[in-house]
Amino acid sequence: MTEVRMRVNGVVESLDIEPWVSLLDALRDHLGLTGPKKGCDQGACGACTVLADGVRINACLALAMQYADKEITTIEGIAKDGEGRHPLQEAFVRHDGLQCGYCTSGQICSAIAMLDEHAAGMPSVLTPSVQPASAVLSDDEIRERMSGNLCRCGAYNGILDAIRDVAGRETVS
């Protein structure tokens, strides 16, 4: 067993775990955080997406030990204290961006990081050169940047509408 200390949703946690325990299993089985889901357990579906120091990662592919002394944020920790739900959670509800809900926590965590990446001017396949933060986030750009998150129910139109809403866009491009 190895002791791993990390900050999870603002709380310092100390876990005694085997070195091969994934971050996803540490969060779910050792800390009782059931928001991140074990979908494919291969990094292909995005249901396990969490934020590590603000960057989205597939928790099923990460060893918990890799994230010692890091800030891990799950869906349970994205709302600020006393604020209720995060704006993306509200938008997902408002725009029917969820059906069964299995992928929703990963979708929302990924969308939070994706909006931050775009605002910081990080490139993507569609925008290989860094663009100014004021550049419009097109529907195709949203789809590309969210392509690592799958929804078996097919709630993609609602997910796109929710992200577009939070990004401050009204119309489809």
Rank of each mutant, 00 (worst) to 15 (best):
A91P: 01
P132A: 13
V166D: 05
N9V: 00
R5A: 10
V21A: 05
T2W: 06
L51R: 14
C45F: 06
I17S: 07
V130E: 15
Y67T: 08
H30Y: 11
A47K: 06
E76D: 13
A68V: 07
Q131D: 03
C40H: 07
V136G: 13
S110I: 02
V136A: 15
G43M: 04
L126D: 06
G84Y: 05
R7Y: 02
G77Y: 00
I108W: 00
A26S: 06
E170I: 11
A26C: 05
C103Q: 06
D116L: 08
S129A: 14
G148M: 07
T49I: 05
E117L: 03
N58E: 04
A155G: 09
P128S: 10
T34Y: 14
M114K: 01
S147M: 12
A47Q: 08
L23H: 02
S22K: 04
L33I: 12
S124D: 07
S124C: 14
I17N: 07
R164K: 14
R143Y: 12
G154W: 12
V166F: 07
M6G: 03
I112Y: 01
K80W: 02
N9C: 01
V130R: 15
P87N: 08
E170F: 05
P132S: 14
H95N: 15
L15N: 04
E90H: 04
A111N: 02
M146Y: 09
V130A: 15
T104R: 04
H86S: 08
E83R: 09
H95D: 07
A111K: 02
A120D: 13
E170K: 15
S105D: 01
S124R: 06
R152N: 12
V50A: 03
S147W: 12
S110M: 01
G148S: 07
I112W: 00
A162V: 07
G84N: 05
A52W: 10
C45W: 08
I57N: 00
D116C: 04
D29Q: 14
E3N: 11
R85S: 11
A120M: 11
Q42F: 05
A79K: 03
S14W: 01
E71F: 03
C100V: 11
A119T: 08
R145V: 08
R5Q: 11
T127H: 14
A44N: 12
L150H: 09
V125F: 12
L27Q: 07
I112G: 02
V21D: 02
T73Q: 14
E90I: 10
V130F: 06
M65G: 00
Q107D: 04
V93L: 15
R28Y: 06
A133P: 14
P128A: 08
N9G: 00
I57K: 10
